[in-house]
């Protein structure tokens, strides 16, 4: 029964991830021509990490868009992208990472390679907040205010998604671009390879340590309307939920953890049905699934 629930959850999530990946990158034919889609959909952001210089991309990367607007001396800050990230994060939190992020799906596929998985020290999960603060907010803002010019720093120096989805396909199709591959290209290629290797041995490696979007949505996990609830009356502290979590979260101790991507693995594995995920308090979902009596359901 539990194995059936785990399997169903895995398939359901994978189908949603593939659909999101497909919508975000529905111009796959452009990988052959090397052209970019340049229609009106590119005005809009995708909630997940997906480079807008990817030939297949239909919509824009929120981090790239944020830095593009920040880099305009007449605008300096993007109301649109910050508003988009706040609105999406307030509703879904890091469920975006679990279900909608194309780079998250790539990491999940790498993580499916059957090798021993390692856990990262918790302190490394704070690196992404430093990346967000320095490379996305503080340095670009200081540069634009002080000099009137700034580069998309995160995209330029770190983003492995841009390297994988943008730089490499474009270099393969545009001979003229190959002369532009400087030391920076090789540094970024090394970062990408490290992220790929890391994702094989550590589940959701880049989500945990380096993704600025994960940092934003993680902070909003604390208040997001779509959230995880644990019924402590039902919980038997078996530890199965913490053991299966790809983000190394213990849902019983921290159901609102900034690391939780709402993937539902904990809910599927829970033998007592103590975990619910949804927009409500958990009572309705629990009752719908016949897991608990409404009168005895409580949240400590």
């Amino acid at each position: 029964m539990a194995a059936d629930k785990v399997f169903k959850n895995r398939i359901r999530r994978k189908l949603i991830q593939i659909a999101a990946f497909g919508f975000t990158n529905c111009h796959a034919g452009n990988f052959i021509t090397g052209k970019l889609y340049n229609g009106k959909f590119k005005e809009f952001c995708t909630p997940g990490l997906n480079c807008y210089s990817c030939p297949a991309a239909t919509v824009s990367c929120p981090i790239g868009s944020l830095l593009a607007v920040t880099g305009r001396a007449d605008l300096k800050v993007s109301f649109y992208v910050w508003g988009f990230l706040l609105a999406i994060g307030a509703v879904l939190g890091r469920a975006v990472c679990g279900f909608l992020c194309p780079f998250g799906l790539i990491q999940d596929l790498l993580g499916a390679i059957p090798v021993h998985k390692f856990r990262l020290p918790k302190i490394l999960t704070y690196v992404k907040y430093a990346v967000l603060a320095l490379m996305v907010i503080i340095i670009p803002t200081v540069l634009i205010l002080a000099t009137g010019r700034t580069a998309p720093l995160y995209c330029k120096y770190i983003c492995p998604a841009g390297m994988l989805e943008g730089a490499i396909p474009l270099l393969l199709t545009h001979e003229s671009l190959r002369d532009s591959a400087s030391v920076l290209f090789w540094v970024k290629l090394a970062i990408l390879l490290a992220v790929i290797a890391g994702s094989v041995f550590v589940r959701r490696f880049f989500c945990k340590i380096g993704c600025p979007l994960g940092a934003i949505y993680g902070l909003l996990n604390k208040v997001s309307l779509y959230h995880l609830t644990v019924d402590r009356d039902k919980c038997i502290d078996c530890g199965k939920c913490a053991g299966c979590c790809p983000m190394d979260v213990d849902p019983v101790k921290a159901p609102r953890s900034a690391e939780c991507i709402r993937c539902g693995a904990c809910k599927a594995v829970c033998p007592k049905g103590a975990i619910t995920i949804g927009f409500g308090s958990g009572r309705k979902a629990a009752k719908r699934e016949g897991l608990v009596d409404m009168n005895v359901y409580s949240r400590k």
């Binding site: 005005e43 210089s53 991309a57 990367c61 995209c155 983003c159 841009g162 730089a167 400087s182 290209f185």
Partner: peptide
């Protein structure tokens, strides 16, 4: 602004 940036190859954005 976003459309203009995203509709063409952004060399800076991809580390080239």
């Amino acid at each position: 602004v976003i459309l203009r940036k995203a509709a063409v190859v952004c060399m800076e954005c991809i580390g080239l």
